[in-house]
Amino acid sequence: MANIFKRREAPIILFTIVLFCIFSLISSNFLKPDNLGLILTQITTTGLISIGMLMVILFGGIDLSVGSVLAVVATVVGMLVNAGINPFVAALIGMVVGAICGAFNGLFIAWFNIPEIITTLATMFIFRGIAVAISGGEWVTNFPDSFNFFSQGKIIGIPVPIALFATGAIMFGYILSQTRFGRRVYAIGGNKEAAKLAGMSTRKTKFLVYISSGMLTSVAAVIYASQVGSIQASTAGSGIEFTVIAAVLVGGASIFGGVGTMLGTAFGVLLMGMIKNGLVLTQASVYWVDATTGFILILAIIINTVQRSRNLASREGDLV
């Protein structure tokens, strides 16, 4: 039992449960099965993107371009589906496009050594422009019924978006904690120099992380396109990067890199989704959602910094 409270995820899980109780008390609609199902389907988009963001943040980096990558992929997939291409083939092509976007980020970050923040700030605008160019500024809409599978279909009784998010989370949870690639991500984020001296290729790992991040974002984009049903390239997914970053950080990942888990991130995503849903249910203005997201971001980084200084202090104690 004591072990549970020692885990890094303990505060976020506790906080999620407390907030769940508060919202249940405030709004009678919150606890209805329909609403809980709604929360779960709504968080799948941010959830899938946050898996990639977790890996990027584990490196000590940050990715602002995910919202624009989502717009590019959603537009491309939407247009392909409308052109009569099978939705699954379109989704696969979308993943390739997402991977290319990720590779573009990775190229500048890993090979040209341009800081993450600058590269992704630039690509955030570049990809958004490309998305608008592809769509010609028009709404992409009127998808065929078969495309609804990605939002309303079910696999063994589980809604497809939830199944996809769960698969992604479990897969990358396993990769991060059990495989060599995953341990490299932690090692490089924890101590870049040591990882280099141990013979790890930072470049290659970083590049791969950005490609997988792009592919995860593209899966999210397919779900998003299918859920929303109409895409405006200039606004689709804009601002989603902030919710995602907040979710990952509040889930216990450290902005200094090397610390963070898939479980914590999943709870962070759930927390952000609950807050959004709860604020809407309690009739607060939608504008409160943004303000709260920003506040949680700052709160997360305050907790982060306090934890880090405490860790450093305890380590100093050991040495003396």
Partner: peptide, 16 residues
């Protein structure tokens, strides 16, 4: 605290 994350936080919060 890290300048980038703090100012992203205030960016979102103040706009809200």
């Amino acid at each position: 605290m890290q300048a980038i994350v703090v100012t992203i936080g205030t960016l979102v919060m103040l706009r809200g």
